[in-house]
Design a binder for these strands. Structure first.
Length: 379
RNA sequence: GUGGGUAUAGCGUAGCUGGUUAACGCGUCAGUUUGUGGCACUGAAGACCAUCGGUUCGAAUCCGAUUAUCCACC
């Protein structure tokens, strides 16, 4: 159950109560696709990094180790030893990202496994069954994430199909939650808005799915290559039509700046691989801006990665040391950088919440929206 | 000491029947990364081809000497 605590402009401060605890929003969800944060971060680590929700992937876990196995192990929470909320992505995005290996039909999507090439079918019912077996806190509807750019006609047809799939997801979940051996009988379901960058489609589709009384609503299909302004334009158009008393989730976004700007447009939840992926590649986000830790400028820099950060990495190590670890290809490099970036993102969400609480979000936005998108100045 | 081999970017190598801007890997430097098929990808800098001389219209490539280094033998 979602409670809207207060607003500042369009920015919202709320709580989402789940069987696995209460989530404070706006929040950033940490991506652990295959039931693990890449870079060597375990569940106990994540607690220290102020992570509220972990995100896992239906498609990847279905292939390996297999959702039946996870169910046999008592569900994802027990399997990973994570007792806070878990959101499972439906596999819809993989339809898009594995485009070369797919065939989309009314009943669902025919894939070829990227692991061994075997043919797989996934439709709304299959995705719901898998997510039910995983026992996540929040399941995402099975959708088609339309690529960008896409033709208007195709986007419209795809939206209509995504709505039909959504209705099938709702029915399937109702039955699955009623099964006696259901891992999480209180599993929630979020619907996903599509429509490429066409405002008219976005709004119409949102109006359709808003009537279905889901536990939350996501905006999907953004940040897939379109200019940032297009993303903001779509958000400006569609958020007024999103139910006010339900959490709003912008899928796959984004940079710290994107998050601030999306909160300013009324979004509550985010997830993104950027903090972990970029960290593994040597790029960290700090309150001074972006730093490429492999840069020579840090060769003998004794200061912490981010002097304004309280994460385990910044409390214990210098830029010079972390840089050395990256240059030497040590696994610890990625772990320390991922640790920092996730802590940074979770702290960013925390500071956004505090700002809305104290009616200073506008100031926070003015101070950081642009700054965080730029390279940290040399000092 | 004798015979033979090799000398090309920081390192390891290609090019050696002579012909326009000398190639590749690693390393270095910089950038990219948005519901994760990625410790990945893109780009850049960096060499008067050991030294000196010769042959030739033209030499990293052929010849000679020198120096360095490696191998074998004494």
């Amino acid at each position: 159950m979602f409670t809207l605590l207060k607003t500042e402009g369009l920015a919202r401060r709320g709580t989402l109560e789940t069987v696995h605890g209460t989530v404070q929003t706006p929040c950033f969800m940490n991506v652990g696709t295959a039931a693990a944060i890449k870079g060597g971060i375990s569940s106990p680590d994540l607690v220290d990094l102020k992570c509220q929700v972990e995100l896992c992937n239906t498609y990847h876990l279905h292939l390996r180790p297999g959702d039946q196995i996870v169910k046999k192990m008592g569900g994802l929470h027990k399997f990973m030893n994570w007792n806070r909320p878990i959101l499972t992505d439906s596999g819809g995005f993989q339809v898009f990202s594995l485009a070369k290996l797919r065939k989309i039909k009314e009943e669902g999507v025919y894939f070829q496994s990227h692991l061994d090439g075997r043919r797989i079918f996934m439709g709304p019912e299959e995705s719901m069954r898998i997510q039910s077996n995983l026992g996540s806190t929040i399941a995402m509807a099975f959708d088609e994430c339309v690529e960008n750019p896409a033709a208007y006609d195709y986007s419209a047809k795809s939206c209509a199909r995504t709505t039909r799939w959504l209705k099938r997801c709702i029915n399937a979940m109702e039955q699955l939650n009623a099964e006696p051996d259901c891992v999480n009988p209180h599993q929630m379901l979020f619907g996903i808005n599509q429509g490429c960058t066409f405002e008219k489609l976005r709004v119409e589709h949102m109006q359709e799915i808003a009537e279905l009384n889901l536990d939350g609503y996501a905006v999907g299909g953004l940040a897939v290559g379109e200019p940032t302004e297009d993303m903001y334009r779509v958000l400006d158009a569609v958020t007024p039509f999103m139910p006010k008393n339900k959490p709003r989730y912008l899928m796959g976004v984004g940079t710290p700046s994107n998050i601030i700007e999306a909160v300013a447009r009324g979004i509550d939840m985010f997830d993104c691989v950027m903090p972990s992926r970029n960290a593994r590649h040597g790029t960290v986000f700090t309150w001074q801006g972006i730093r490429h830790l492999k840069n020579q400028a840090y060769e003998t820099d004794p200061r912490p990665v981010d002097p304004e950060c309280g994460c385990p990495t910044c409390r214990n190590f210098s830029r010079a040391y972390v840089r050395h670890l990256f240059k030497a290809n040590e696994q610890l490099a990625g772990r320390l950088a991922v640790t920092h970036n996730l802590y940074f993102y979770n702290t960013l969400a925390e500071r956004i919440r505090e700002a809305i609480d104290t009616d200073t979000f506008a100031d926070f936005r003015a101070a950081y929206s642009e700054k965080l998108a730029q390279k940290a100045p040399e000092d």
